[in-house]
Amino acid sequence: MRPLLAVYLREMLLLRRRFWRVCLGMSVSPVLYVIAFGYALGAGSPVGGLRYLDFLIPGLVAMSSMTQAYGVSSEINIARFYAHIFEEFQAAPLTNLSFVTGEVMAGITRAGLSTVLIVAIGAAFGVTMHCGPLFWVAVVLNAFVFASLAVWSAMVVKSHADQALLANFVITPMAFLGGTFFPLERLPGWSQRILDLVPLTHAARAIRAEALGGAAAASDYALLVVLGAAAFFIALRSVDAARE
């Protein structure tokens, strides 16, 4: 247990050192989205009987928890390619399970912090969300999926540039098409079927349903659990690839 906590604690100590910078970084994009999409573009376009801003903010929680959880890949990359601290882990009696779990926990923590910030930003713009236990379960599952994918990608890429490319091709399209900014029902049927395979779609659906005081579908949670478990397993298998 101690080696696992060492991995997590290191990330938390670094987060603490840069706390205000990190919080500021996590807040900039959501505030811009709220202003640009919530006010400038979507002010007069209610969605399913909701103010657009009420629709948007829970979507931003899903998107931000995804990007922040995935952000551990950058931290690992810096440790691996620039600071070489990753070698300290490789030379220690640390199991792959401990390493991946520690990093995934760090990703989930970052996602939780970003969620708290967006809830606060939402409140500042007059949007009150119901942040019950199932809301947080959806956030954690979403972060679990993407932090696991982040560890996998950080282990298999050969450079930080490869990592950025992967984010551009996978994370950015998902952020815009996974039900963050508009309801998927507005898209053609074929694209809806594709986007139904994307974890963020289900996370956004579950988070939005809970945030608006409704009940999320159990299938959304189930799918996130399955995808998270698969991503975690792949991440475990990928750690040895970094020893090549």
Partner: peptide, 24 residues
């Protein structure tokens, strides 16, 4: 190792503490 691989943003004690935890 040949290259310095300490966590620059952490204190000397924190670097050593994390190592100690890694070695249980």
């Amino acid at each position: 190792p040949q290259q310095t691989n300490l966590d620059n943003d952490l204190s000397v004690g924190e670097n050593l503490d994390i190592h100690g935890r890694l070695f249980d």
